[in-house]
C-alpha cells in the first residue's frame, strides 16, 4: 500500500477487488471505460438554505445555488471555512432540505416541503446510494471498527454471511485489519478517518461525498485517500470532495465548485 502515494493510475490494481468485481457485474462496465458522462446526477435549481429555527428575515446560509454535476463526475468543492461547504454536501446527501428551490439527486427531486410517508421511503432508499465521509468521522462509539464498516451493508439488507469478506478486505485495504475489533475511541484520528472512509466506500455508492476527508491524515495517507477517491470516480461513482487544501486539487485537477459566503463563485462547465 505504500506505493499508493504515487500516480493514482498506478494505484488502480491495489483497490479492493470486490469493488471492481461488483461494479463490473452490476453495471457491465470496464474500469478503463468508466468516465463521467453527461447524465445529471446532482442538480440544484435556485436553491437557498436557511437553518431551521433561524429568525424570520435572517440571511440564507446558502443562496442562489444553480448548478448540475454529471453522473460519474469528480468535483472539488472549495472555499474557506464557514463558506457553507458542509451544508451544501449535506443537501447533496439529502440530509438537509432546501429552504427554497429544488435539489435533484439521482432523479429524485426534493423541495422545501415535508415529505409524505411514501416519499420518505423513496428518499431513504436514495440515501442508501449516497455515502459520506464526515469531517468528524461520526463512527458509532459502541460498535467495533468492523461493525461500523459493515453498517451500510446491513442497512442495505445484505445477508450477514456475505458481509465478512467485504468488510475484512476493506479494512485490510485501509490498513485497519489488525484493529477490526477495536472501538473507535481507542483509534488515533487518522485511523478513525480511515475507518470512516472504509465505511463510506464499502457499500459501493453511486455518489460519494467527502467533507474535508484529509483533515486528520498525514500527507501520505491523504494521497492514498485521494487515490481511492479518484479510483471510485474511475469506477463510475460521482465524487464530490470538500476541502480547503490546495495541495489535493493540485494533485488531481478536476472541476471545482467554489463557495464563498454561501454563494457559488465558480460553476464547473
Amino acid at each position: 500500500m505504500a506505493g499508493w502515494a504515487g500516480n493514482p493510475h498506478r494505484l488502480f490494481l491495489a483497490t479492493p477487488a470486490f469493488l471492481h468485481k461488483t461494479l463490473h457485474a452490476i453495471r457491465g462496465w470496464h474500469c478503463c471505460e468508466v468516465r463521467g458522462n453527461r447524465t445529471p446526477m446532482l442538480r440544484f435549481t435556485d436553491v437557498g438554505l436557511r437553518y431551521e429555527g433561524a429568525p424570520l428575515g435572517a440571511p440564507e446560509v446558502l443562496c442562489d445555488l444553480d448548478f448540475t454535476l454529471a453522473q460519474g463526475s469528480f468535483t472539488w468543492l472549495l472555499g474557506p471555512s464557514g463558506a457553507g461547504k458542509s451544508s451544501l454536501l449535506r443537501m447533496m446527501g439529502l440530509a438537509l432540505r432546501p429552504s427554497r428551490g429544488e435539489v435533484e439527486v439521482l432523479g429524485l427531486r426534493v423541495g422545501p416541503n415535508a415529505s409524505r410517508l411514501a416519499r420518505r421511503g423513496a428518499i431513504a432508499a436514495m440515501r442508501r446510494r449516497i455515502a459520506t465521509v464526515y469531517q468528524d468521522f461520526r463512527l458509532l462509539p459502541y460498535l467495533s471498527v468492523a461493525d461500523n464498516v459493515a453498517l451500510p451493508l446491513r442497512l442495505a439488507g445484505r445477508p450477514e454471511t456475505s458481509l465478512l469478506p467485504d468488510v475484512a478486505e476493506m479494512l485490510a485495504w485501509v490498513g485497519l485489519d489488525h484493529r477490526h475489533a477495536a472501538r473507535p475511541a481507542t483509534l488515533s484520528g487518522g485511523e478513525q478517518q480511515r475507518a470512516a472512509i472504509a465505511r463510506a466506500v464499502v457499500g459501493r455508492p453511486d455518489v460519494l461525498l467527502a467533507d474535508e476527508p484529509t483533515g486528520n491524515l498525514d500527507i501520505g495517507q491523504a494521497r492514498r485517500l485521494l487515490a481511492l477517491l479518484v479510483e471510485m470516480h474511475r469506477l463510475g461513482t460521482t465524487v464530490v470532495v470538500a476541502t480547503h487544501s490546495e495541495e489535493l486539487p493540485a494533485r488531481f485537477p478536476a472541476a471545482a465548485l467554489v463557495l464563498d459566503r454561501g454563494r457559488v463563485r465558480h460553476v464547473p462547465s
Partner: peptide, 14 residues
C-alpha cells in the same frame, strides 16, 4: 441521537 441521525442519513427508513 447521533446514531439515529447517522442511520437516517445513511438511508434507514423511519
Amino acid at each position: 441521537r447521533d446514531a439515529v441521525l447517522l442511520l437516517h442519513e445513511w438511508g434507514a427508513r423511519d
